[in-house]
Nucleic acid binder design. Structure first.
Length: 551
RNA sequence: AGUGAUGUAGCUCAGUUGGUUAGAGCGCAGCAUUCAUAAUGCUGAGGUCGAGAGUUCAAGUCUCUCCAUCACUACCA
């Protein structure tokens, strides 16, 4: 049995969960549910990422403390995840005592290993706000193309990158005032000394090929040291023995994975060290978006290495979500929050299914085409999948007292082949899940369902039902409908990680408890309950309503 | 600007180490059917595989150039 600690990236606590976030959480949740159904010991850990300047300022604007802000957001996030059936074992917060302690200890270990040094740097300072300004909080004229109102790190007009001190006529986004340059002492992590370790580590099959290509750029350019401190005022953890200096949020955010697990382990009498001590034989798997690859594939493993912890086993990066082929946009109404989806479309299974049908193991972006979305889920799930019990169970109820013919008594060769065929794809199904090639999985399963619909059309049970002797137990009619329902049940078990809530209803239809293991395919159902519609078709009007709805 | 990636039917995507008339689902057209949430089955139309050049007996698949789209470029997260 494998022991796996799985994480999704920590959502930042300054806004709502949207459909882009959900690509990652749904992808991870499917993978975790798959591992659990395989009988592996898996813990799925996450937390809100709560520190940094934006959250501090947002709280100030709302006239509440940052602590209250992140607490409110946490409640909202947790509810969104729950409603999308994203089943964390622990959803915690980086603003926790566990995280503070771990961050401090890790920092001390880095100091002890001579990986931290101090350096005085010059930064823009807002004299009115009395704070140093992050790049994103300074705007000005691009030094290259002279476009106005460009951010301090790059120009959206010409794409140039530079330092905020290069801007012409810089101003503070907070006050509009011209910031002054001011010297300040910062703490740096000697990432430049980690090249050997990192270049070795990234070749250990921990990363996707594209990700490794991307990192090679960095190695070629040479790694720079990493500024891990920020000046007060800053919402975060104060650095030990450095009053007025705080950990940069990206230092304590990944440590939040550890802290969330620590919290979980303490509450469940598990061993923290078992999963985090150096050379642990457990697996540590991070699901992330491609935008935060650097933090997870450079800073994070280096931090772990030089503070004496285990390193990640796998980092799985996925692409971004586009809606109708374009970046999500508030003005187009395609910036869709989790809550807006739930309010309008209601059924989370549809999105889970759709994402699964498009996800693979690469870092490519995936597109949510809303027309395609409704066509696909209606056609696949309602028209094909749910259609199987819908068109066969009536006969079983009407003539055979809800009893199914046992699989071993099914005589027709074609019928037996259908059932065996589905049982035989098990290895392929597991392979697609393990490799995160969910699109292939969905295609494979849908092909099975298509064969079933084809089978029903060929056998014409409705014609048989009108014939003499077909209402007796074990008749052709009984066998054909039983075959389809057995096969439908098998497909349902295979697809459970994708749409667990729907298949739990299907289990109920077969008078069973929800499917918890792939070995459930070795047993069979012998009766059904009266069929009731398992899901509704998606109406395009609901999608239109969702696009208009703005938050 | 640099780097990484993507560009295959109206839409969303498959296309293994280059090998016969380029595939699927949806959509569309026609037929069949009525058990089923106008669901299903069968048949068909539809593509100069982003553009151009090259290597090869043979290229969607390899090389180069160009175009378009996306992402990243370290003190926003």
């Amino acid at each position: 049995m494998r022991k796996i600690l799985v994480t999704s990236a920590l959502p930042y606590a300054n806004g709502s969960i949207h459909l882009g976030h959900l690509v990652e959480y749904i992808q991870t949740d499917i993978w975790v549910r798959f591992q659990k159904m395989q009988g592996n010991l898996v813990y799925y850990i996450c937390a809100d990422d709560t520190h940094g300047t934006p959250i501090m300022l947002m709280a100030e604007q709302e006239n509440i403390t940052p602590e209250i802000l992140v607490k409110n957001i946490h409640i909202e996030h947790a509810k969104d995840f729950e409603d999308f059936h994203v089943n964390f074992d622990n959803f915690y917060s980086t603003n926790s005592s566990e995280n503070k302690e771990l961050s401090e200890n890790i920092y001390r270990a880095l100091v002890k290993n001579n990986k931290i040094f101090e350096k005085e740097i010059e930064q823009f300072y807002d004299t009115d706000k009395k704070m140093f300004l992050p790049d994103r909080f300074i705007k000005g004229e691009c030094p290259k193309c002279r476009a106005k109102d460009q951010y301090g790190d790059s120009c959206e007009s010409c794409g140039a990158t530079y330092n905020p001190t290069d801007l012409n006529n810089p101003y503070s986004v907070l006050t509009g005032l011209s910031p002054v340059k001011k010297k300040t002492k910062h703490y740096f992590f000697k990432l430049s000394e980690c090249s050997n370790f990192l270049s070795k580590w990234t070749k250990l099959d921990t990363l996707q090929k594209e990700a490794r290509n991307k990192l090679d750029e960095w190695f070629k350019a040479g790694l720079s040291d990493w500024d891990i401190s920020r000046d007060a005022p800053y919402f975060g953890f104060e650095i030990p023995d450095a009053p007025g200096k705080f950990f940069y949020v990206w230092l304590d955010a990944p440590i939040g994975y550890m802290a969330s697990f620590k919290n979980f382990a303490d509450n469940n009498k598990l061993s923290f060290d078992d999963f985090w001590k150096n050379n642990s034989d457990t697996e540590l798997v991070h699901f992330i978006g491609k935008d935060i690859l650097y933090f997870h594939a450079l800073f994070w493993p280096a931090t772990l290495e030089y503070s004496g912890y285990r390193k990640p086993t796998k980092i799985y990066a996925h692409g971004f979500l586009t809606v109708n082929g374009e970046k999500m946009s508030k003005s187009r109404g395609t910036f869709i929050t989790a809550r807006s989806y739930l309010d309008n479309i209601k059924n989370p299974n549809l999105l889970r299914y759709y994402y699964a049908s498009k996800l693979n193991d690469s870092m490519e972006d995936i597109d949510l085409n809303l027309q395609d979305f409704s066509a696909k889920v209606n056609s696949d799930l309602v028209g094909k999948f749910i259609n199987i019990p819908s068109r066969t169970s009536g006969f079983i109820s009407k003539y055979f007292e809800n009893k199914l013919v046992p699989i071993e008594n099914i005589e027709d060769k074609k019928a037996r082949d259908l059932i065996l065929g589905i049982i035989n794809i098990k290895d392929l199904v597991l392979e697609h899940y393990e490799s995160r090639f969910f699109s292939k999985l969905i295609k494979l399963l849908m092909t099975q369902v298509e064969s079933l619909n084809e089978f029903i059309s060929q056998k014409e049970p409705w014609v048989l039902a009108k014939k003499e002797g077909q209402h007796k137990v074990n008749s052709d009619l009984h066998q054909i409908c039983s075959t389809c329902l057995h096969a439908f049940r098998l497909v349902s078990i295979f697809i459970t990680p994708v749409i667990p809530e729907l298949t739990s209803k299907i289990a109920l239809f077969f008078n069973e408890s929800p499917y918890k293991s792939f070995s459930d395919i070795e047993t069979e159902a012998n009766e059904i309950n009266k069929y009731e519609h398992l899901m509704q078709r998606l109406d395009l009007k609901d999608i239109e309503a969702m696009i208009v709805t703005k938050k």
